[in-house]
Simulated assay, not measured.
Amino acid sequence: MIRTIVVLSLILMLFVTVGYAQSERKAVRKGNKEFKKGEYLDSEISYRSALELNPASFKGNFNLGAALYKQDKFEESANLYADMAKANTSANANELANVYHNLGNSYFSQEMYEESVEAFKNSLRQNPNDMETKYNLAQAQRMLQQQQQEQDQQQDQNQDDNSDDDQQQDQNQDDQQQDQNQDQQDQNQQEREQQISPEDARRMLEAIQNNEQQVQERVQEEKAKRARVQVEKNW
């Protein structure tokens, strides 16, 4: 009785597994038809349905990445292919070469040329005779070189701008220092002009004294006149 139950359980599990496998393949085939028609969003949905039944499905994941790429979801497709490359290290060389090829395209479309070059090289390590991958690698290398040149030019430009700023700052400091020196010179000149030399001070003192003496003499003369007048008018 127990043996019979075990056998029936195994048969039931086999039928369920076969049913899931058939449903998965059916969903993948449906996605493939939609992909060929250019219905990429619908194909994405179908591939995801297949992956719900079998998350490890190589075809489901690979084709899902292609559907994402066709919708310009380059970052998502790159992440998916990168995960596949890590998880399917034991896959056959041709399958792994295709994964790296599509990974390189996903990076290339994001202008991540250094990562793209490395992905295409990994693809050629698995399939050295793939002419399309060789062409894509050459394109990625050319774009990487151009990108690096532009970055170097931008860096040089930034350095020149910084140098110009430093020169302008130095010039402003020099101008400010010259203005300060000129102000100090003007102030010193004014102080010198305001100062009285000992000779000038002596002359000014003599002039004051002379003026005072003249005033005193005039005062004495006036007193003498008044005295003379009073004497003459003395009744």
Rank of each mutant, 00 (worst) to 15 (best):
S23A: 15
G65C: 13
N61A: 01
E24M: 11
L14D: 11
S46V: 01
F35G: 12
L64S: 05
E24P: 04
E39G: 01
V18S: 12
R48T: 15
L51P: 00
E39K: 06
G65S: 10
A21F: 09
Y47E: 08
F58A: 06
R25E: 11
I45S: 11
L51I: 04
K30E: 15
R25D: 14
T17R: 02
L8D: 10
G38T: 04
A50C: 06
N63C: 06
S23F: 08
Y20I: 08
L53W: 02
A27L: 02
T17A: 07
F58C: 05
R29H: 14
S57N: 12
F15H: 03
K33S: 08
S46F: 04
A21D: 14
F35V: 00
L53C: 11
G60V: 10
Y47Q: 05
L53A: 03
N61S: 06
D42T: 01
K33G: 11
Y20P: 00
R48Y: 13
I11G: 07
R29E: 15
L10S: 04
S57V: 04
K30A: 11
N63E: 13
K36Q: 06
G60R: 00
N63I: 05
K26H: 09
V7W: 02
E34V: 05
A66F: 06
A56N: 15
E44T: 13
I11S: 08
Y20F: 13
A21R: 11
F35H: 03
S57E: 09
A67D: 10
F62T: 01
K26F: 10
G65P: 05
G38Q: 06
G60M: 05
S43H: 06
G19A: 14
G19S: 15
R29A: 15
R29C: 06
N54T: 07
E34L: 04
Y47H: 01
A27N: 12
S23M: 02
V18M: 10
E44Y: 02
K36R: 04
R29D: 14
A67C: 01
V7G: 11
N63L: 06
Y20C: 09
Y47M: 04
A21P: 04
L14R: 00
N54E: 08
L10I: 11
V28H: 01
L41R: 12
L51H: 00
S49V: 12
F58K: 01
A56P: 01
G19C: 14
S46N: 09
K30I: 10
V18T: 03
V16I: 15
F35Q: 03
V28S: 09
Y47D: 05
E24A: 07
D42V: 00
G31W: 07
G38S: 06
M13K: 04
P55M: 07
F62D: 00
F58V: 02
S46H: 07
T17N: 08
F15Y: 13
L53S: 03
Q22T: 07
A50G: 08
S46R: 00
S9A: 12
G31S: 10
G38E: 07
D42I: 10
K26I: 06
E39R: 10
G31V: 08
